[in-house]
């Protein structure tokens, strides 16, 4: 086990090195537009995310935050403009989509764990089937990440037997097992009871400190202040304002940002 931890850490070290040598842009979105039928959800989105950058996205309900980050791993298809992830442009080419999904982890509001598989099986499934990793190795890596999210003792339980906070931590570990270079979070704490939010945020802060490239849709402003390099405010399908956290919270420029912040901060 100890040996394996070392291995996994080496893996991490290697990846950090790679970050420096690779191109520095992780995600490049240019003039991206999306429609649901006639409804224009995303309008001319331009966003460049650098490697190791932590971005928090906020905005009123229905503003298109989820849709935008779901376009990054092709859970939703965009109709105009371009998205380049890790140097690969997203097109209808299934191979490229697969390649991108292997490098981009995603954590959902409702965890989306597989209820018919144990926690360990949830974590080893993709490494075994997608990365073609031997089962034993996959299990060792899974146990490593489960320890990191502080629930190795739950490995043989089923998701339905865990609390919400524990399930979300498993979901994060499950993504990490694929060794992604970018992590997307779509309101990871908004389905959780207050006492469980902290345990999930702690894991995310840990990830950020290690230099993971992260895009988080969240309304946890404490988290945004603590880890974000940049906060993006979306409204009606557009990026209305972006800034570094201090400036964004203390001195919002756009009136809609001011209105939004006054609403969520006074609750």
């Amino acid at each position: 086990m100890a040996e394996n931890t070392v291995e996994a850490e080496e893996l991490h070290a290697n990846r950090s090195k790679m970050h420096i040598s690779d191109t520095d842009v992780a995600i490049e979105i240019t003039k991206m537009n999306k429609w649901y039928g006639d409804f224009h959800v995303l309008k001319d989105i331009d966003l460049r995310v650098m490697r190791g950058e932590r971005i928090v996205i906020c905005g009123p309900s229905g503003s298109g935050k989820s849709t935008m980050i779901r376009c990054i791993n092709r859970l939703e298809e965009h109709q105009k403009g371009s998205i380049v992830v890790d140097g690969i442009e997203l097109t209808n080419d299934l191979k490229k989509i697969d390649e991108i999904r292997r490098e981009v982890g995603m954590v959902f509001q409702h965890f989306n764990l597989f209820p018919h598989l144990t926690i360990l099986e949830n974590c080893t499934l993709a490494p075994i089937w997608v990365r073609k990793m031997p089962k034993k190795e996959a299990e060792e890596i899974a146990m490593h990440y489960l320890s990191r999210v502080k629930i190795p003792e739950q490995a043989h339980k089923y998701p339905g037997q865990l609390s919400g906070g524990q399930q979300q931590r498993v979901a994060i570990a499950r993504s990490l097992c694929m060794n992604p270079r970018i992590m997307l979070f779509d309101e990871p704490t908004s389905a959780l009871d207050p006492e469980m939010i902290k345990e999930v945020l702690d894991v995310m802060v840990g990830l950020a400190e290690e230099g993971m490239t992260m895009l988080c849709v969240t309304h946890e402003m404490g988290f945004a202040r603590q880890v974000a390099n940049r906060v993006i405010f979306m409204d009606r399908g557009q990026i209305v304002e972006q800034n570094e956290p201090e400036e964004f919270f203390n001195n919002p420029k756009h009136e809609r940002t001011q209105l939004f912040l006054s609403q969520i901060l006074h609750h």
Partner: peptide, 11 residues
């Protein structure tokens, strides 16, 4: 969500 969870993992 089950489909999305699976797709996001690259299955």
């Amino acid at each position: 969500g089950q489909y999305e969870g699976a797709q996001a993992l690259g299955l």
